[in-house]
Amino acid sequence: MSGAVFAQQLVNGIMLGGIYMLIAVAFTLAIGVLNFLNFSIPGIFMVGAIATWRALENGWPWVGAIAAGLLAAGVASYLVERFTYRWMRGLDHEIPLVSSLGFLILFENLVLIGYGSDQQTFPALMPDFNIRVAGLVIGTGQLISLVLALVLVIAASGLLERTRIGRGIRAVAENADTATILGVEIHRVVPALFILIGLLSGVSGILFAMNYLQVSAFMGHEIGLKGIAAMVIGGMGNIWGAILGGLLIGLIEVLSIAFFGANRADICVYGALLLLLVVRPEGLLGGSAIVREKL
C-alpha cells in the first residue's frame, strides 16, 4: 500500500471514528455515573434516525424533522430510565443491563412492525461533495459529523465539569446517598442524565443516516456494538477515553478492511476488545474521569 493510500485510509478511519465517538460517550456516561451497561443505546440511536426519517417523509422541514428525532430519542431514553434504572437502584447491576436489552428488542421490533425490515432511503441533507487537501479526499458530510461530534462531546464534558447539574451528576456517580444528603435531587438528576444520553445517541443516529442515506430497524446494532468496544478500549466512564476509543475503533476497522478484507474487520475490532479486556480491563486512559471508585 502506498503512503498516499495509507494516509487516505487514516483519514477515512478518523471520519468513521467520529460516528462511533458520540455513541461511545453515551455508553460511558451510563457506565461512569450509574454503573449501568445500557444496551438500549443502539435502539435509541435507531429511534432518533427513524423518527427524523418519518418526519421528513411527511414533508417536515429539516430543522423540524431533526428536532422530532431528538425528541423521540430523548423520550425513549427517559422511558428506559423510568422502567429500568429507577426501579432497580441498589440491586444487582446485571438487572438493569438485562432490562435495557429488553428495551433494545422492544424498540427494534416496534419499528419493524411499523415500517418493515427493509432499508429505507434517507434523503440527502448535506451537500455531497468532497474536499481535497494535499491529495486526501475528505467527505464534507463526514467532516461535519466529526466536528459536530467533537463539539458535542466537549460540550457534554463542560456540562459535567462546570455546571450545577454536572456537579450533581458527578456527586451521584460517586455516592448516591451522599449526593442525597447534600440536597441533590436524584429523581431529577438521573432522568436528566438519561435524556442527555438519549440526545447524544439520537444525534449520532441522525448523523449516521445523513452520511449513509439509509435507515432501518437494525441500524443501531453494528454501530452500537462498536460504540461499546470504543468505550471499553478508551476506559469505561472516561469521556476522553470514549473519544480516543471511537477514533481507534474507526482506524482499526478501516485499516483491517484495507489489509485483510471486509470479512476480517470484525475479528480485528472485537479481538482488540477481547484482548484489552483480558490484559487491561481499565482501558487505555484508565479508570474513570467521572468517578474512579465505582467499578
Binding site: 450545577r164 456527586a171 460517586e174 455516592n175 467521572i290 468517578v291 471508585e293
Partner: peptide, 12 residues
C-alpha cells in the same frame, strides 16, 4: 466526594 475537587465539594 473524593473524586471531586475541594472546591466542587463545597459547591455541591
Amino acid at each position: 466526594l473524593v473524586s471531586m475537587t475541594v472546591e466542587d465539594n463545597l459547591k455541591v
